[in-house]
Design a protein around this nucleic acid. Structure first.
Lengths: 146, 146
DNA sequence: TTACGTGCAAACAATTTGCACAACA
DNA sequence: TGTTGTGCAAATTGTTTGCACGTAA
C-alpha cells in the first residue's frame, strides 16, 4: 500500500509484459530491463542512453531491435527532435509534446494539445490513420544566464 | 507583364541574391542553381534530391555546405520528418506546415497554424527564441487504394 | 590578389543486416 | 525441442571534416 502510492510504476510494467505475451513475443532479460527503465524514468531516451542505463548488459544492437519491437506493438513512442538521433519514451495513452532547449537539450513535457481540430481538417482531405508531431524549441532560463 | 503574372519566381530569387551580398557571401554557381530550384519548385527537398536536380553540376558536399549557409542567413528552412534525412525549402516569411503520406512520402503544404497561443505559454515558462515544429502524417487517398 | 568556396577523399555517427550461437516457451 | 532473440562483425546511409586547388569580388 505504501510503496505503490507515490508512483505506481509496477502496473504499467506488468501491463507491458502482458502486451508482449499477447503478441507472442518472448519476455527476455533485455526487454525486461528496457521496459523497467522506460516505465520508471520518463525519458525520452536515445539508444545510447538506454544502452548505458542497462549498464551494457546487452549489446547496443539489441537495444535497437528491442525498441523496434516495442514500437511495433505500440508500447513505445519515437520522438525525433532533429538532432541526429531519435528518442524513445513509454507510450501510455497520454498524448503530449515536448519543450526542448536548443542549447542544453533539456527536455520538458507539455500536457497541452489543441490540435485535434486541425487533424480533422487533414482527415477531410482524405487522409487515413492521421497523426501529428508537435515540438517546441527555445533557450531555457538556465542557458540564458550562462 | 505576362510572364511575371502567374508565379513571380524571379523576385524571391533576386532578393535571395541580395541577402547573400548583404552578408558578404559570394554568388557562386552552385548557390545560384540551388536558389533557382528552391525558389521555383516548392519542395522541401533532401540533399540528394537537390544534388540530382543540379544534375551533379557540383559535388554533394557542396550542396550540404550551401544549404548550411543558406539556412544560416535565413533563406532556407530545415524540415525533419523523422525518416533518416532532413529536407530544405525556401523560407519566405510564410509560416506553414506539412502533410506527409506515411506510405508514398508525398508532401503537401498546409497553410493553417493556430499554435501561437501555445508558444505564448512556452514563453511564460521563461524560454526565449521560441519556435515549433508541427507535422501531420497519414495515408493519402491514392495509397489507400493501392 | 586575397579571402572565400569547391572537389575529392576520408572520417564520423546513427542505424541496419548476416550469421552462428543462446535462451525463452 | 523449436522457434525467437542475441552478440559480434561488418555493411549502409546521412553528414561532416581536412586539405589542396579554384574562383568571385
Amino acid at each position: 500500500m505504501s510503496k505503490a502510492h507515490s508512483h505506481d510504476h509496477q502496473a504499467p510494467y506488468d501491463q507491458a509484459l502482458s502486451t508482449l505475451r499477447a503478441a507472442r513475443l518472448k519476455i527476455t532479460l533485455p526487454r525486461q530491463q528496457i521496459l523497467r527503465i522506460l516505465t520508471t524514468e520518463h525519458g525520452p531516451f536515445t539508444m545510447e542512453e538506454l544502452h548505458q542505463r542497462v549498464k551494457n548488459a546487452c549489446d547496443l544492437v539489441t537495444v535497437y531491435r528491442c525498441l523496434a519491437v516495442l514500437e511495433d506493438v505500440g508500447l513505445v513512442r519515437r520522438c525525433d527532435f532533429g538532432d541526429g538521433s531519435c528518442r524513445y519514451e513509454f507510450h501510455q495513452g497520454s498524448h503530449h509534446h515536448h519543450l526542448i532547449c536548443r542549447r542544453c537539450r533539456k527536455i520538458e513535457t507539455l500536457d497541452i494539445c489543441l490540435i485535434e481540430e486541425l487533424e480533422r481538417d487533414v482527415r477531410q482531405k482524405g487522409y487515413e490513420d492521421v497523426s501529428h508531431a508537435l515540438e517546441f524549441f527555445g533557450i531555457c532560463p538556465a542557458c540564458q544566464k550562462g
